[in-house]
């Protein structure tokens, strides 16, 4: 599969502090890649390295399968941290300045078209300083879309937006991905929103990439139900199937079993397993969403880092 962004062993240190540590990351063409991490996890630093705003301490970056980064970066649109616009200019003037920068031929057509797409077509002579945060954010996205980029890097594009603004930005990103075949890398804290949007995910924590997975894999991992850990999985499956008529029992990667909800009362189930001589190590309800999955993965990583003495 063609990658638009590929990092290998990418590391960034500020003084003695490592912000990004040996990250391998792949964003495939056509993805809406949800980049997840807590504040200070290294998301923005990694994006900034990818788009050339920060130099890596070590490691490599490939864009559109090429090492000629300066050339490839012409094909990238970015919105990083906050909407970067000239406050003393109107939306059209901001667009024209960027069009000139990127050598766009038909400035008026490109400007009108993109402002229409982001819903700022009727802002007229209003200066950007008088825009709401949502409008500024949409203007920043329009600026990022100039020159028909193949790849859009959006760092926290929904920061500070009201619920309606968040929905607008989400719809816009989906539309751009679907209609213009733009690959999108989007980092966000609002995991609920991200899960409605992303087709692939990467979780970064304390500068390290913990996992990368597809939306389908996430769905599988986040399936809600009753998770049990026993000493004999085969015997437990047989018992649950025969005694409680539970059909859809899924073995989990962590050695447990996932029972669909609602199946039966956990207490009765526990009793039956014990009576059958099956030791129950744990039994709990599993919440099925990205937020819980993220918390689970990061807390496991934290424990692992602590064990490793880091």
């Amino acid at each position: 599969m063609e990658t638009v962004l590929e990092t290998k062993d990418l590391t960034k240190q500020f003084g003695g502090k490592t912000a990004v540590s040996h990250v391998d990351m792949e964003v495939h063409r056509g993805d809406i890649y949800g980049f997840i991490g807590k504040n200070g996890a290294g998301k923005t630093t990694l994006i900034r390295m990818a788009v050339g705003l920060a130099a890596p301490t070590s490691g490599s970056i490939r864009l559109m399968g090429s090492d000629h980064l300066e050339e490839q970066r012409r094909k990238i649109g970015t919105v990083i941290e906050y909407p970067a616009v000239f406050p003393h200019m109107t939306a059209k003037e901001n667009m024209e300045a960027q069009c000139r920068l990127l050598g766009v031929k038909n400035v008026k057509k490109e400007t009108d078209n993109l402002l229409e797409i982001v819903g700022l077509g009727d802002t007229g002579k209003k200066k950007a300083r008088n825009f709401s945060l949502g409008m500024k954010q949409r203007l920043a996205i329009a600026l990022a879309l100039i020159g028909n980029p193949e790849f859009l890097c959006l760092d926290e594009p929904t920061n500070g937006l009201d619920p309606a603004g968040i929905v607008e930005v989400r719809d816009l990103i989906q539309r751009l991905n679907r209609e213009r075949q733009i690959t999108v890398l989007i980092s966000s804290h609002i995991l609920g929103e991200l899960s409605k949007l992303a087709t692939r995910y990467g979780i970064i924590h304390q500068g390290r990439m913990l996992e990368q997975f597809t939306a389908e894999e996430l769905e599988e991992r986040c399936r809600s139900g009753l998770e049990i850990h026993v000493d004999n999985r085969e015997a437990a499956v047989k018992l649950l199937h025969e005694q409680f008529r539970i059909a859809d029992i899924r073995p989990l990667e962590n050695g447990g079993l996932l029972l669909p909800e609602p199946c039966t009362q956990p207490a009765l189930l526990n009793q039956a397993l014990i009576q059958a001589g099956i030791m129950v190590d744990s039994l709990h309800t599993r919440q099925g969403d990205l937020e819980h999955y993220f918390m689970q993965v990061t807390s496991q990583a934290e424990a692992a880092f602590a064990r490793a003495g880091q």
């Binding site: 050339g52 490839q72 970066r73 990083i80 909407p83 000239f86 406050p87």
Partner: peptide, 16 residues
């Protein structure tokens, strides 16, 4: 001003 407004990012991120 380009740094203050953050618009320098719009230039530098395009490979100039």
């Amino acid at each position: 001003g380009e740094f203050g407004y953050g618009t320098m990012k719009n230039i530098a991120s395009h490979g100039f």
